[in-house]
Amino acid sequence: MPIHLGEDCFRPGKMKLQKLLKEKRSSVLDKWVDAVLNTYSDEAFRIFKNEKNQFANPVGYRVSAGLTALYDAIIDREIENKIPQLFEELVLVRAVQVFSPSQAIYFVFQLKDVVRKECEKAGLTDFYKDLLIFYESIDAVALLVFDLYMASRDRLYQVRMKELKSGAHIFTDGGCPTQLLREYRKNKRN
């Protein structure tokens, strides 16, 4: 679903904030990633934060890569045309972890907090309008994440349904496998 970030949002050269977001990219991302990883246990935080090999640390990798992709897509307005795949993969992870729906997608709003603090640190005091516009764009992204989260949950239910329909439940629920195989072969030919 393409989203619209608003007319004034991130128009090149117009916002002080956009300049700041570009300049402070690595610092903002670092803090944002930390904030999101902090939603896991302390022990997990240490490992998810420090292990850099993406295959030894899939959650840490997907958080970091997903947020980076999202951040760049917002700044460059790319997200209006295309949702970054890495970001979708992050939502897939959050959707099956031990979070309530609000906790799972809260990470989007955490960017507001990180950016506001970064602005204060940089001495930007007359930026409230910029910040409001930026917040609006985050809200738009949050709606998008809501859709992605539900799509992930829906996919999970489909997976569960498909497994049930495949007859694997016969393992435990009785029934006649031969009858199922007969039906299956019949369907396969049709």
């Binding site: 904030a35 902090n38 939603t39 896991y40 246990s41 302390d42 935080f45 031990v98 979070f99 309530s100 609000s102 906790q103 809260y106 709003f109 955490q110 907090d113």
Partner: peptide, 20 residues
């Protein structure tokens, strides 16, 4: 807001109850 980001780590988890 601050509570939201912490509640998973510090509260009992919804699914496993495992994060102490």
């Amino acid at each position: 807001l601050e509570e939201l980001s912490k509640s998973v780590a510090k509260g009992p988890s919804l699914m496993t109850g495992g994060i102490p």
